[in-house]
């Protein structure tokens, strides 16, 4: 049973995909990026990143490889796959459509 991450359902997966679009990153770095980019607005319990990453692995949207981090630790780096890229585009499109529609609704009503 997924817990409340403080985000709308599925959003975390989309954020992770978006962060990985620019470059492959390991888990800790992904968490940092999300926090940084959202100016600490979206404070996610960092561990909940990992169930989301596993889901992305199942779906085949990311691939993981072990490598050395800058700090010299063994870390697992996640890389977006072609189908992950497609998924991200589709989800962003869907997200835009939804927020657009809600925007219009809020303005016009």
């Amino acid at each position: 049973m997924p817990r409340d991450t403080g985000l709308p359902p599925g959003t975390l997966m989309m954020l992770v995909l978006r962060v990985l679009l620019r470059q492959p990153l390991h888990g800790y770095a992904i968490a940092q990026r999300i926090r940084q980019l959202s100016s600490d607005e979206l404070s996610v319990e960092e561990g909940s990143l990992y169930p989301a990453l596993q889901k992305l692995l199942v779906k085949g949207w990311v691939k993981a490889t072990w490598c050395q981090s800058d700090s010299g630790r063994q870390v697992r780096e996640y890389r977006l796959t072609a189908s992950g890229r497609q998924q991200l585009e589709a989800e962003i499109g869907e997200y835009r459509r939804m927020t657009g529609a809600i925007d219009v609704l809020l303005k016009e009503a």
Binding site: E45, G47, S48, Y50, P51
Partner: peptide, 14 residues
């Protein structure tokens, strides 16, 4: 970070 045990449980769910 959160409860590791519970998080691993969730990851397994995936």
């Amino acid at each position: 970070f959160g409860n590791t045990l519970r998080l691993r449980e969730e990851a397994r769910d995936a």
